[in-house]
Amino acid sequence: MSNYHFVQPLDVLMIRGNKSFGGDGQHGEAVMPPWPSLFAGAFRSVLLGKDAGQLASFAHGGDRLAGKLGTVLGSRDEPGSFAINWLSLAILGAEADTPQAIVPLPADLVAFDAPRVETLVSLQPTAASAGCMTSGELPLVAHLRIARQAKPETGRWLDTAGLAAHLRGELPARTLSSTALFKRETRLGIALDGNSRTATDGALYTSEAIALGQAVGFLVGCEGDDGQLPKSGHLRLGGDGKGASYRAMAFTAPLVAPHEIATSRRFRVILATPGLFADGWLPEGVTRRGSGEYRLQGDGFSARLACAAVPRFDTISGWDLARQQPKSAERVAPAGSVYWFDDFAGDVRKLAEWLASGLWGDNPDRQRRAEGFNRAWLGLWRNAD
């Protein structure tokens, strides 16, 4: 069962990426939207902060915590049942308890602001034309077809209704602009001498801060907290320990009816959070056959990977507070990557259950699983008009 929380920063946020900075003249860019691990750490800290003794034991790598808290959080090396399963921006509606989820455009949608071009166009998987150069072995290529050449718009987002329409295979009615949701601000800083804790001469640097708009925050879905997480409270969030408040809210994630997949025998998988896969861009459970075909094989279902739209790799890292050391940097398929599957056979309900638990397969990385990576949405695959 998922519990959703609306997280609203009390100040700007310093959402740092994987690039170190702080030296003379360097600039630190903010990651937006942030990685789910940011909120996993913040909420785990809230749970640990309930008991100072258990907090000290956890930080020093002691045995598994006692009682329900131990079941929820586990140990420093082996996480418990608590995990992040949803992360998006959100806007509070006219009623204070109705959050509107806001997600970036998936890779199979392109926005335009140009004459004689639709404002939103979906990529369509088609067979590669004669002489067309492709970089992979998949049978279909995601094509963008528009009336004339135009430059795509960046920084566009979908609301809950738009995401639901997209998962149904329909074109969303509208998109939102980043400028209506948040602003990037530049902050000036100066490096400190680690020994004297005084300013270092000439070591100026700049960093980006994220200032969210009015009534804009984050919608975070949690599972496995066993009632241990308070319904409301405060978090330390991001770089410099900026404050944020949170409170539980009712939210229903958009889903598609599985019976249409059983009829059409095809579907899409859209990454909701970055995908940490053993084979790079290829989701767990998909393997290459000797004939050059890529097949998804799960417990009670199978399908062929026919097409993919995967933007350039991202790199995730982070800071391990318990060990006081950086986490390993790892390449990920970006959130919003889209995979088209056909030739489906088996039980659609098992396919939906597999997706709901995250695209992990036999991947042993329990920490990243608990942090909310590899989450995905199931969508219908319909041809556009």
Score class of each variant (00 low, 15 high):
65 L>S: 03
153 E>N: 13
324 Q>F: 01
210 I>N: 01
269 V>T: 00
269 V>H: 00
10 L>A: 10
330 E>D: 07
277 F>N: 04
197 R>P: 06
370 A>G: 13
285 G>I: 10
311 P>V: 00
262 A>F: 02
14 M>N: 10
326 P>A: 10
42 A>L: 07
199 A>Q: 00
227 G>L: 11
321 L>W: 04
208 E>C: 04
239 G>T: 03
1 M>E: 11
198 T>I: 13
102 I>K: 05
204 L>Y: 09
248 A>T: 02
372 G>R: 11
198 T>F: 09
228 Q>F: 06
89 L>K: 04
380 L>Y: 00
385 D>F: 02
156 R>S: 05
333 A>I: 01
217 G>N: 10
211 A>W: 01
209 A>P: 01
256 V>F: 02
277 F>D: 00
250 A>W: 06
34 P>I: 05
59 A>Q: 02
298 G>D: 09
323 R>I: 04
91 I>A: 15
274 P>C: 05
46 V>Y: 12
124 Q>I: 11
161 A>I: 08
328 S>A: 15
184 R>V: 04
239 G>F: 06
343 D>F: 03
382 R>I: 10
147 A>M: 06
150 A>W: 06
124 Q>Y: 02
247 R>M: 13
61 G>H: 06
305 L>Q: 06
190 I>T: 11
336 G>Q: 09
66 A>C: 01
380 L>M: 09
126 T>V: 14
29 E>C: 07
200 T>S: 12
185 E>W: 06
354 W>D: 01
251 F>L: 07
310 V>T: 03
116 R>V: 04
286 V>K: 02
116 R>F: 12
232 S>M: 13
138 L>W: 09
374 N>V: 09
36 P>H: 13
3 N>D: 15
98 T>V: 12
83 A>E: 10
267 F>H: 05
233 G>D: 05
125 P>A: 03
301 F>M: 11
265 R>F: 10
351 L>K: 00
223 E>A: 14
79 P>R: 13
259 H>V: 09
144 L>T: 09
247 R>Y: 15
108 D>R: 00
80 G>W: 01
308 A>I: 08
374 N>C: 09
262 A>R: 00
131 G>K: 10
210 I>W: 01
177 S>Y: 02
101 A>V: 08
209 A>H: 07
54 Q>L: 12
175 T>N: 04
